[in-house]
């Protein structure tokens, strides 16, 4: 557990860099987190991030399949938005825990 200052805000993250308090998240924090992975966030990215947060708030398990069926973006598009980690990097940027599903 560590504190990190990002976009002028102090946020708590775990050892892998995932935020531990989703309420500390906002779009500016997301933009900065995305930059760490070399991603410049677009409106499409934010649509995905909001979707991930909504699903997580409901207590459901996240899978890329769910995102693919969300109507926001297909799976190929999701890989395009978050290269090298469609669910992992997006979850990190969305300020939610690391996905616990294998799919």
């Amino acid at each position: 557990m560590a504190e990190k200052t990002i976009a002028g805000k102090s946020i708590s993250v775990n050892e892998e860099g995932y935020m531990t308090d989703p309420s500390q998240w906002d779009h500016d924090v997301a933009k900065e987190l995305a930059k760490e992975d070399g991603i410049e966030l677009t409106d499409k990215h934010f649509e995905v991030l909001e979707f991930l947060r909504t699903v997580t708030e409901k207590g459901e398990t996240l899978t890329i399949r769910k995102v693919g069926k969300s109507g926001i973006v297909d799976i190929k598009g999701l890989y395009g938005l978050f290269p090298g980690g469609p669910l992992k990097i997006s979850s990190k940027v969305a300020g939610i825990p690391k996905p616990s599903s294998c799919v």
Binding site: T61, R65, G68, I75, K76, Y79, P86, V103
Partner: peptide, 18 residues
């Protein structure tokens, strides 16, 4: 139930990811 898709859809997911 665990959101593991049928074979064909699973393969689409894999090829979508390269």
């Amino acid at each position: 139930k665990l959101d593991i898709p049928p074979v064909e859809e699973f393969m689409e997911m894999i090829t979508a990811g390269g």
